[in-house]
Structure formats: structure tokens, C-alpha cells
Simulated assay, not measured.
Amino acid sequence: TIGLYYKSHAVPLYLSEMAPARYRGAFSNGFQFSLCLGALAATVVNYGAEKTPNSLVQQGKGRGEVKALLQKIRGVDAVDEELDDIVAANATGQAGDNGLRLIL
């Protein structure tokens, strides 16, 4: 929480105090604009990714629904192996295993 406080309160204050008087507004507004733009970009990415096969498995959707979407995305019918990998990865993630340890 200290880091969040620092980023959202101290940085704009520092920028406005250290900037030359004629640029203070631009620096302050630029910082706020950057934050808003980043939040918008994250929202757009999340919106676009919520219908992907990984997200559907995490949401508990049926295997048939996920398989149909995966077939549509890949353009082939043979997606069982990839679907099994997605389901296994989701089960591992829900079990609380450390994903980084599995990669290494």
C-alpha cells in the first residue's frame, strides 16, 4: 500500500513542485492522463481476453463449449490435446502450485 500511495500521491506532487512554473499543469495533467490511458488499455485487453478458451475454463464453462471455441479459433477439429493442456494448466493453477517452479 505504501507503493500505491507513493505512485498516486507523491509522484504528481513531486512533479508539480520540481517542474518549472510554466510546465506544472502540463506535467500534472500528463501524469494523470497516462494513468487513465493505462487503465483504459488494461480494460480493453481484459474485455478482449474474457472469451478466450483459458478464461472460459477458469470460469467453469463446459468442455464442449470451450472445445467449439478452440476449434473456431484454430480452424481445425483436432484440438483435444491442446484443450487437455489448458484444463491441466487451470487445475494446476487452482491447486496453488507455483507455476514458476513448474516452468523451471
Rank of each mutant, 00 (worst) to 15 (best):
Q71H: 03
F27G: 00
D97M: 05
I2Q: 12
G60Y: 04
L100Q: 10
G25A: 04
N54R: 12
G96A: 04
G60A: 05
Q32M: 07
H9F: 15
P20Y: 05
V79P: 05
V76R: 15
G96S: 05
D84K: 12
T43C: 12
G96P: 05
D77Q: 13
A10S: 07
I86M: 09
G38W: 06
L69P: 02
G99Q: 05
A95N: 11
L102K: 14
A39Q: 13
I73V: 13
Y6D: 06
E50L: 04
I2Y: 14
A78W: 01
V57T: 02
A41M: 11
L100V: 13
D80P: 04
F31T: 01
G25K: 08
S55M: 06
Q32H: 12
L70Y: 02
N29D: 09
A78E: 15
A19L: 08
D85G: 01
L4V: 09
P20V: 07
I103C: 09
N90Y: 04
G3F: 08
K51A: 10
N54M: 08
L104V: 06
C36V: 07
H9S: 12
G64L: 06
A41L: 13
L83G: 07
N54K: 10
L15V: 04
A78K: 14
K61I: 00
L56W: 01
M18F: 08
V87Q: 10
L15K: 08
F33P: 00
K61R: 14
P53C: 06
S16R: 11
L83S: 08
K51Y: 10
G30M: 01
T52K: 07
N90G: 03
Y47P: 00
E50G: 00
V44L: 15
F33G: 07
L104C: 02
N54P: 12
S28H: 12
L69A: 04
L102G: 15
S34N: 06
A39L: 13
R74A: 05
Y23G: 00
S16W: 01
D77E: 15
G38L: 11
A42F: 11
L100T: 11
L15I: 06
N29P: 00
A42V: 09
A91M: 11
F27H: 02
K67Y: 01
G30K: 03
Q58N: 09
D85F: 05
V79A: 04
V11A: 05
L100C: 05
R22T: 03
E81G: 01
A49F: 07
R63K: 15
G48L: 11
D85T: 07
A91H: 11
D77V: 03
L100M: 10
I103A: 13
F27V: 03
L4W: 07
Q59E: 15
G96Q: 05
L83K: 07
N90L: 00
L100S: 08
F31D: 02
Q58C: 02
D77N: 14
V76T: 15
K51H: 14
N90P: 01
A19S: 15
S34Y: 10
H9N: 14
S34V: 04
I73E: 10
A91D: 14
V87I: 15
V87P: 00
D85N: 11
N29C: 02
L70I: 02
L35P: 00
V66H: 01
Y47C: 07
A39D: 14
N46K: 14
Y47A: 14
Q94D: 09
G64V: 06
Y14E: 12
Y23V: 02
V11P: 06
Q58H: 08
